[in-house]
Structure formats: C-alpha cells, structure tokens
C-alpha cells in the first residue's frame, strides 16, 4: 500500500490569473500520481485549501476524467464519439464487456482490466477506435477486438507488466 499522506506539493502551483490554488489542477496531479483520487488525499486537500470536502467531492464527480476508485492494471478505453458510433463501436463494446465480464466504467474483479469510455479521442477518421494501454487500434470490429484482447492477455500473462500509461 502506498503512503498516501503528506504529498501535496501539487498545491504549490498557482492557478491561471490568480494566486489561489485550482482544485481541478491539484486533482489532476493527484490522479496522475495514484491513477485515481484516494479519499485520504482528498481529505487532506480539503483541509489544506480550507474547502469543504463536499465541494471537492462535487468536482470529482462532475468531471468525467476523475475517478474515485482505483483503475485496473491495464486500461481499455473505447471511443463512444459520433464517428465511432456510426461505424459500429457499440457492437465492439458489447463484445469487450462480454469477454471481460464487466460493464464500461468498471474494473474486472482481479484488477487486471478497467473498461472506460470517452466521448471522442480526436482520431475519428480511424473509427471505431479502441485504446489499450495507450496504444491505438483503429477500424475495430467485434472479431478483431476479441483477437487483440486475447493476444494482449497472453502477452501480459508472461511478462508481469506494470504499464499504467494514461490513454488519451
């Protein structure tokens, strides 16, 4: 278990145009460090910035980017933007959920994979698009994603992988 206490160096950075602290940018830094927003750190942030915890909780739940639960070791991010939708991402997503046994937004019980969706990855010409651990896979179909995940599964079984590179 990581020591979650005492690291609020993020609070040194002033917010654009003002001397105060931007809670959002502090939370970005926290999430970057822990891959999610641990409660202990948020409590500390609240105390440090003299902000009610409820306000911090409000921000954490308002913005889609923030997560209050730990992410899986490997991140599968699928794009649910319009271009990806009309080219059939839904079929792909259903297949991924079926394979891993979890719905988008959650993590497999063994903590290996988390399944996320994002509104657009900005590479719409390659729709439908899935990103696994930062690597982009374009023109996805149900059968292609099945092969890719199986391959990824085998690969990561052999080499205990520690990648948590943030997908776009």
């Amino acid at each position: 278990m990581q020591d979650l206490k005492g690291d609020l160096s993020v609070l040194d950075k002033p917010v654009a145009g003002n001397n105060g602290v931007s809670l959002i940018s502090a939370m970005h830094d926290i999430q970057e460090k822990y891959s999610y927003l641990p409660e202990e750190v948020l409590r500390e942030l609240a105390a440090e910035t003299d902000t009610p915890l409820i306000e911090i909780y409000r921000i954490a739940t308002f913005y889609k980017h923030f997560s209050l639960t730990p992410k899986g070791k490997h991140r599968i991010v699928s794009c649910t933007g319009t271009a990806c939708h009309v080219r059939g991402i839904e079929v792909v997503n259903t297949e991924v959920s079926r394979l891993l046994g979890v719905e988008p937004g959650s993590t497999t019980a063994d903590g290996k994979y988390s399944l996320e969706t994002v509104n657009c990855l900005g590479a719409c010409a390659l729709a439908p698009l899935v990103v696994i651990d930062g690597e982009y896979y374009g023109n996805m179909t149900a059968s292609r994603i099945r092969k890719i995940i199986r391959k990824h599964d085998k690969k990561t079984e052999k080499t205990a992988c520690s990648c948590s590179s943030s997908a776009k």
């Binding site: 654009a16 003002n18 602290v21 940018s25 308002f62 913005y63 889609k64 923030f66």
Partner: peptide, 27 residues
C-alpha cells in the same frame, strides 16, 4: 499565456462554464 486543462465535461465549452472551470470550480 498559460494553459488550463479541462477534466472531461462537454458543458465546459460554454463560455461561462469554461470560466468557472478555469477558476477551479464545477463547470
């Protein structure tokens, strides 16, 4: 010039929400 990074909320593209988000609040 400085950069302010959003956190994934479509409504923050609306100007008053955007300003509120830069101020570190809910957009």
């Amino acid at each position: 010039v400085s950069i302010s990074i959003g956190a994934g909320a479509f409504v923050c593209g609306e100007t008053s929400a955007l300003v509120s988000s830069i101020e570190g609040k809910v957009g």
